[in-house]
Design a protein around this nucleic acid. Structure first.
Lengths: 239, 239
DNA sequence: ATCAAAATTAAGGTAAACGTAAGGCCGGGG
DNA sequence: CCCCGGCCTTACGTTTACCTTAATTTTGAT
């Protein structure tokens, strides 16, 4: 996921160290704004005035406990809330989750894990299930796949990018997959003028294409030469 | 929360004891249908045919690992998935969550906690949050985040503001992230008239954009040139 | 009217992609 | 068996699409 939400998060904890750690970690991860409260009273006020998109709260607070606070906030809002606590007894976790917490993380915690868990929850809450983009249609040739939209050829040993000519030629072949395409036809789809001297130029480009899509360019499995006729992109053999 | 969804859940685990325990627990909790698979192959088949509303899977499976399976299923579906594992090493949790798991629960687990966590996730997924103002969607490129609404680019060393043209260009690229966008198409989305002299003007704006979003504008990591075709905003590489 | 910020124009530089040529291979027909 | 034509392969020279910087013009705010 490349896109995230620029969220305003309320952190409720009375340890300045934790507050600072969270601010650093969340800012680094791209969560823009972190506001903090060190007790229940401040948390209530900030929650009402700032309307944060999520809350992270400690279970033990100087003027009350996090459980009651969560219960109270939950009555007014359905935003993601998660507990951060040094107490990892079973009953506490069950109580916290039972009150509607989205997670219950025990201290000490891995900063990266907190970020992953939090962004997972935020994604679920703010990015509905339907909006997933459809994957691009790809050409699959054994162990390599070609994405024409991105121009990327993926294989076991990395990614390569197609050049303009390679892209045009392979696309033409793909559109006629399984059928023979004459050299002349290929040339007309990759070059706009009727320049001669093609014969060899085309071969060089075919060779370069083979270097990107074939395991062994000298023993082509997919981009085949049909002597005296042209080239053919073989269809995938069923399993 | 009193409401629960009548869901169809797929459990993937090779220990019959766990399967039975989960079936009992989940049925008791009101999750209507639990189907089970004991290996990756069965899981794939059942996932495709039954289209479950959620998946619980073990990390260690007889014919493969749960991580790969999750990665594969995630490409086709966005339903809730969570790991169940006897291995609670930090790296495994991070890996699992990084692959898009909604939770990572370690064995032995409290049945009630599993139910609470699962129903929390299902609630988030199938009961979207209507009443909350949505936070701004942001583009994340490594250490840099771009908020299109505010036009602000944040990085480690401060904030920069996008100009109108930069904003238009980056937005177009963002909308086609991962795909090649032709220079012509970019120009049409940033300029309304058919003015000529584009070629170079565009390049200068691309350069300025790179100065704001790239660590080293001369060695772009994200805003890439595809020679002879156009430009491409690379998708974040999933480590 | 004035000034700063943004957009555009211009011009020299560079390397990736392309084209060219030349020698080699290989199968088919004589 | 040999020869020939079609295709392969490699290296190398060239082109041109793109980069970069800086100067100039336009825009817009005050």
């Amino acid at each position: 996921m490349n896109t995230i939400f620029e969220t305003k998060l309320l952190v409720v904890d009375d340890e300045p160290g934790i507050i600072n750690l969270l601010k650093t970690v969340l800012n680094q991860a791209g969560f823009a704004q972190v506001i903090s409260a060190e007790n229940c009273r401040m948390a209530r006020e900030l929650f009402a005035s700032e309307k944060p998109h999520g809350v992270i709260l400690d279970v033990m607070l100087p003027d009350g406990d996090g459980f009651s606070l969560m219960q109270e906030l939950r009555q007014h809002s359905n935003v993601p809330m998660l507990f951060l606590s040094a107490r990892d007894e079973d009953e506490n976790r069950l109580l916290g989750l039972g009150l509607g917490a989205d997670d219950y993380i025990t201290k000490p915690f891995l900063p990266r894990e907190l970020v992953l868990r939090l962004s997972g929850i935020l994604r679920r809450v703010y990015q509905p299930l339907q909006t997933q983009p459809l994957p691009d249609e790809c050409l699959v040739l054994g162990a390599v796949t070609v994405n024409f939209k991105s121009g990327i050829v993926k294989s076991g040993d990395g990614e390569k990018t197609l050049t303009a000519k390679e892209h045009a030629l392979l696309k033409k072949l793909w559109e006629n997959q399984g059928n023979i395409v004459t050299a002349d036809s290929l040339c007309r789809s990759a070059w706009d003028d009727d320049l001669y001297g093609y014969e060899n130029t085309l071969m060089v480009h075919i060779r370069r294409l083979r270097e990107k899509i074939e395991a062994d360019p000298s023993q082509p499995q997919y981009l085949l030469t049909i002597r005296g006729m042209g080239y053919k992109l073989a269809k995938e053999t069923k399993q």
